[in-house]
Simulated assay, not measured.
Amino acid sequence: MIFPVDKFAKVEIEQRNDIRASKERLTRNRARGTKSPYFALMLTTPSIPYNEYIPLSAAVDGYEGALEIFVVQNPIPSIYENENDNTIDFEPKGSKTIGIDYTGNYSAGDFIQFSGSTKAYRIMEVDGQSITLTHPLLTDIAAGESVYYGKNVQFQMCVNDTHTTTIDVKQSKFGIIDVELIEQL
């Protein structure tokens, strides 16, 4: 089941990290927590006609909140287009730098994914054949794995929160839906 991301006009993507820090003060102790980083997508429709609003609202309800896990095609356009690229070497869990054999271009801020994983990653820096990620790998990546980039990245998500417009039954002609999705593995 693929989420109808094309029905939403606004998207906000946030990387959420489990960071442990002492209360605000001049010097702070910082440590990475035990929970893996994940992405949250906040999606908002434009004001849509009532006859489109009702079926979309029902479709969102059909995901049963956090119960269903589904695929969301990357809603953010990438700077470049790449296909048929592969990882160069084995990269262990926890690594942030990945060697990729590619002929095109990659851009910081775009998303990538590896064939052996359902996790999406964001590119922080591109340097030659190396790409640095915004957070470490959650699993080992084998040499020769396919690399999915930009529009080919699929987030595995569930619904975290939903807000819909209050409808005046006799006079409403439009509605707006806000949905927050969170990445699942």
Rank of each mutant, 00 (worst) to 15 (best):
R32N: 04
L41I: 04
A40I: 08
G99Q: 10
Y106C: 02
I13T: 13
E125T: 14
N51H: 06
I88Y: 03
Q15L: 15
S146F: 06
F90C: 00
I131K: 10
E83Y: 10
K96P: 00
T139W: 00
P77Y: 06
D127S: 15
P75G: 08
A59N: 04
I69F: 00
T87D: 03
M124F: 13
T132S: 15
R122P: 01
N29F: 07
D110G: 11
N51S: 09
G62Q: 02
F111G: 06
K151A: 12
I76C: 03
Q154M: 02
P75F: 03
D89I: 08
D110F: 11
F111N: 06
R25A: 15
T103K: 10
Q154V: 04
G65E: 07
G116W: 10
E125V: 11
R25H: 12
E14R: 15
E91H: 15
P49E: 13
S107F: 05
K23W: 06
P37F: 04
Y38C: 04
Q129W: 05
A9N: 11
Y80D: 10
D61L: 11
E14M: 12
P46C: 01
I100S: 03
G33R: 04
E145R: 13
I88L: 14
S47A: 14
L26N: 12
I48Q: 04
D140L: 07
E52S: 11
R28Y: 00
N105P: 01
N29Q: 15
E68L: 11
S22A: 15
T87S: 05
G94V: 07
R28M: 15
D18M: 07
D127E: 13
K10Q: 10
L56Q: 02
S107D: 14
I19V: 15
P75R: 04
Y50K: 13
